[in-house]
Nucleic acid binder design. Structure first.
Length: 589
RNA sequence: GCGCCCGUAGCUCAGUUGGAUAGAGUGUUGGGUUCCGAUCCCAAAGGUCAGAGGUUCGAAUCCUCUCGGGCGCGCCA
């Protein structure tokens, strides 16, 4: 309907130009803006072309608007055109124009709202990508729900989405995990140590992995604790440096176990945790096309090639024994180390290789969903792409702020330092997957959000998820009651009598339904699933108020069938929208 | 100290990319309703869009500064 009006306006302008009513030499805007009105007293749609064009053609906006309105081709969808305010052109649509929406929805069903504006272009969406050093926590949950919704939305508007999880299976943090696992394993072998490394991973899950390790290897990996700790630099509680202590401990583990056995410990920890994360996300309805290994970038030589490309571009230099990338050439705050003094490549080096690989894989667009705490990292990644001649504007980095959990009006978040953070799994079990998915995307991503656990759990209309799902279930319930009364719904007869839907509530509901494709497109292109979430709540509200104002199962079979068409169409849209957000649409609650 | 994000009704948040009288939910107050399924409907009150300048026909939206909050500023990942 919106596109219809844009088309009419466009031909009106061309007509004016050809008829001499408008200077022929001015350039018409390529896209004529038509907007939904905020207020029904302004009609259903409005355009401000006259205002935006007034300056270039040096005419009064209102006068220009009158001319354009007069030049509009006739349309059976328009009841009235009005020039109002400073020069808006307001469109009042005929009831028939909105009734047609119902027919469209019934014909398209699950496809209603989908479009092809993406043109089949390839978009990669990388999200979560948490280090496999422990279970996902509630912060990762928001990235998961958000990234999944963005990818699904993009697919709905015709992109081909490639969902990817970057697995940081190389690097120091993983060594710390492997060493932590081994130490817990030694405990299971009846070794006792004075205190666990302050920089080690202390979560309970590390003991589980250690038990797994012992189950597979028995005592084969056992070494006396005295030997492990011999001559190590002291840990922080003992007055030393915790970083130096843990690094020495890692080196000792590698030395005592040997490369092969160490790798076994390392991989067991990695695989156990990764399997847990996979399972967690799958239960959350988040699935990936690809799990991309950081380690594979080293093994395939991709990191070396990335360094070589930067080298060839002339943006690397040596200082203090390390190899630096002059990222300041591309707007970064400071230059960054690529290869450390000890010869090890930094995480950044691997990430450059990873992003070069993304570009080489031929994605039209690349989206990274990161926690907001990584925002300082954006300029250096873009700098690296620019340095080797890739186009950094192909990469969008979407930053997701953390969520603060509230329970009983109090913050429910525990410190991450102690390892006693709230896991995503705990959250899912507490409030349910549907509520978690929905609440996470209810706010725009760069907004800090308060996650009210009590509200998410409540089975009342105060809870937006419940409210929306209930609207869906309520339609199903009406259909069940129809059957109980021995009646049946004749869709064709309903379609033929849509003109009977003249009530204010019915008009409002149809207006809402007609907005859905626009909402999906906007939410997708702007990466804003919250737009869809809010729309669904409004639509559910329109439906519930309709339900409360009118009986659907009336004696007049023509009106009854028309109304049933309307509510079934509503059910389609509710289901389609909820599905895009990863929320179920139950038939009964 | 520097950089990024944020600041909208008592609370939680929208605001269609610069448009018309700034909205929704919740909470408060008053009235009505209890009928397919957990109620729902109507009304009122509630705002210096953090503050101050600027850009223009027009600013919550764009620019500058100030205040307040979050995050970041490793040869960690």
């Amino acid at each position: 309907m919106k596109h219809h009006l844009e088309h009419l306006l466009s031909s009106a302008l061309i007509g004016l130009q050809q008829g001499g009513g408008l200077a022929a030499d001015i350039e018409l805007p390529s896209h004529i803006p038509v907007e939904r009105t905020r207020d029904r007293s302004h009609g259903e749609f409005a355009s401000n072309v006259a205002l935006t064009l007034a300056k270039t053609v040096r005419r009064k906006p209102r006068e220009l608007a009158e001319h354009i309105a007069a030049a509009l081709p006739a349309s059976d969808k328009i009841a009235k055109v009005e020039v109002a305010g400073p020069g808006f052109i307001n469109f009042y649509m005929t009831p028939a124009a909105f009734q047609g929406v119902i027919t469209d929805i019934m014909a398209q069903g699950p496809h209603y709202g989908r479009s092809t504006v993406g043109g089949g272009r390839l978009v990669q969406v990388e999200f979560v990508s948490a280090n496999p050093t422990g279970p996902l926590h509630v912060g990762h949950g928001r990235g998961a729900a958000y990234g999944a919704a963005v990818a699904d939305l993009l697919e709905a508007v015709g992109y081909k989405a490639h969902r990817e999880y970057y697995v940081n299976d190389a690097g120091r943090q993983m060594d710390i995990l492997a060493t932590s696992v081994w130490l817990r394993y030694l405990e299971l072998c009846d070794e006792a140590f004075a205190f666990f490394p302050s920089n080690g991973y202390k979560g309970e899950y590390v003991r589980d992995i250690a038990a797994d390790l012992r189950g597979q290897h028995g005592n084969a990996l056992h070494h006396p604790i005295a030997q492990v700790m011999q001559d190590l630099p002291p840990d922080e509680p003992a007055g030393g440096d915790k970083e130096a202590h843990i690094d020495a401990l890692i080196a000792r583990a590698k030395q005592l176990l040997g490369a092969a056995a160490y790798r076994q410990v390392f991989d067991l920890g990695l695989n156990d945790i990764l399997e847990d994360i996979r399972e967690d996300l799958r239960e959350f309805g988040v699935i990936y096309e690809e799990w991309f290994s950081e380690r594979s970038l080293f093994e395939s030589g991709a990191v070396d090639r990335a360094v070589a490309r930067l080298q060839a571009s002339g943006h690397l230099y040596e200082k203090d024994g390390a190899l630096w990338f002059r990222s300041t050439d591309y707007g970064d705050e400071k230059d960054r180390v690529i290869v450390r003094e000890n010869g090890q490549k930094t995480y950044f080096a691997a990430d450059i290789a990873y992003h070069m690989d993304k570009m080489e894989r031929g994605f039209d667009r690349v989206i990274d969903v990161w926690g907001a705490d990584h925002h300082g990292y954006v300029p250096r990644v873009k700098a690296a792409l620019a340095a080797v001649g890739d186009d950094p504007s192909r990469l969008d980095v979407l930053l997701v702020q953390f969520a603060t959990l509230y329970r009983g009006g109090e913050k429910a978040q525990m410190s991450t330092r102690s390892g006693e953070f709230v896991t995503l799994r705990e959250l899912r079990h507490e409030v349910g997957d549907d509520a978690a998915r929905f609440f996470y995307v209810l706010r725009k991503c760069e907004q800090h959000m308060d996650f009210d656990l009590d509200l998410a759990k409540s089975q009342s209309s105060d809870n937006p998820v419940y409210y929306i799902q209930y609207a869906h279930a309520r339609v199903c319930s009406v259909m069940r009651q129809l059957q109980e009364k021995g009646l049946h719904w004749d869709e064709a007869r309903g379609r033929a009598n849509l003109h009977l839907l003249t009530e204010t509530h019915e008009q409002a509901l149809m207006l809402g339904l007609s907005r859905y494709p626009e909402i999906v497109e906007m939410a997708a292109l702007n990466h804003e699933p919250h737009q869809l979430a809010h729309f669904l709540r409004d639509l559910a509200n329109d439906f519930h108020t309709y339900y409360n104002a009118h009986i659907f199962i009336v004696d007049d079979s023509l009106l009854r069938d028309a109304r049933l068409n309307l509510i079934i169409a509503t059910r389609h849209v509710l289901r389609n929208g909820l599905t895009l957000l990863g929320v179920s649409a139950p038939e009964a609650m």
